[in-house]
Nucleic acid binder design. Sequence first.
DNA 1: GGCATACTGCCAGTCACTGGCACTTTGTGG
DNA 2: CCACAAAGTGCCAGTGACTGGCAGTATGCC
Lengths: 223, 223
Amino acid sequence: MIAEPSRNTESALPLRERKKLRTRRVLADTALRMFLEGGFDRTTLDDLVDTAEVSVRTFFRYYSSKEEVAVAAEGELWEAYAAEVERLRVTGPVLSHLRDCYADAVRGLSEDWTERYLATRKLVAHNPALGVHHAGAVQDLQVRMTALLEDKLGIDSREDVRLRLVSEMALAAVRYGSMNWVRTYRHSGRTGDAETLIAEVTAAFDAFPGALELSPDTLTRSG
Amino acid sequence: MIAEPSRNTESALPLRERKKLRTRRVLADTALRMFLEGGFDRTTLDDLVDTAEVSVRTFFRYYSSKEEVAVAAEGELWEAYAAEVERLRVTGPVLSHLRDCYADAVRGLSEDWTERYLATRKLVAHNPALGVHHAGAVQDLQVRMTALLEDKLGIDSREDVRLRLVSEMALAAVRYGSMNWVRTYRHSGRTGDAETLIAEVTAAFDAFPGALELSPDTLTRSG
DNA sequence: GGCATACTGCCAGTCACTGGCACTTTGTGG
DNA sequence: CCACAAAGTGCCAGTGACTGGCAGTATGCC
């Protein structure tokens, strides 16, 4: 649920803050590596904290669960996405706006994020418990984004059905686009790139009008 | 993830099966009652199984987690929904088809289901852990429904973006509609009724075209 | 350098969840 | 009616995630 601040301000912080940031990062990196190598279930928290050289108690001051540290990279994305939606003024169709915010958010992430994210997604794909946690995080984001849009547009989502549906659709597009992106790299050792991810997600956003009309009669095989 | 068979066949089963069904039901009912009265976190599994008069070991032969038994009523709905989608042939727009399947599924559930479902949703609303579990269950259902539609329509969801988006939209409508329905009864002791639930969800389904165009310019306050 | 504050580690505990084995109950065939 | 196999259940002794409390240590501020 909590993510690193953006990359450019890293070194201008007081020593204590830099240390915390570093611990946070070491934990996430170690976790990702160990979970990928030894499996999420078979790697115990004790193993992890020993390797990362912190105590169990400290671990829980940084991450609220074993699941959360595993998907830390994804958490960064959600933070950035929410921040971008909060930052920009809405012009034009809301759905297109959310599509563009996603692209901006991804572009603003640190250099090595793409690789960590791809690894995270592969991990999630192999583990049901992480899948559940992932679904929960997306749901949280959706609640958060709906609240942001309510403020910005001055609509109450309880009165206007469309507002909540539009954020549901946005997250659906994000989920679906990323899934396709991950699939591209499955079994290949290649590292993904951010622009391809953005392209996949954008395509999913833009496919909404067509999806509404999908029916067995009008079915063309290729779509 | 597992639900009771439909109501009409209950008594025609061998003794052993009826006993199992009864245990399953006792566990779900007891859990719902105890969690509502004493809180989900503060009620331990030991408390629950003592009251339900089964051993811990047996509990886990019926439900895979404390969370699952708490949302058993919702599990029944997902089972029924998936079964309905599997049963019926798709005619006309897929989204409308999924909307109608939902209505049929709800109508096919047992008499007291509505009340249990409403109680379940209130419980979920108060507990983050249950919210996460709920999100995971919806995600599972979505994967399952996508697979069903792939078979029925002969499309590969990896090739045709629209197929997966349509099931994302269906589940979004279901989520949103039920949320509104639950909100109606919040704080009131009244018990909800199934037709109102169906009406809310149907309205959400039908609001999709409008949601696509939602923009700050074309905003009418009422929607 | 001294002090308040924040961060960390250790300890002991709770609780969800699991494998293994012995026991009981149910359905079945002589 | 009585075995006998199969299915269901309970007990026990674990493992592992997570938490509260307290004492020790480091950092930032004067």
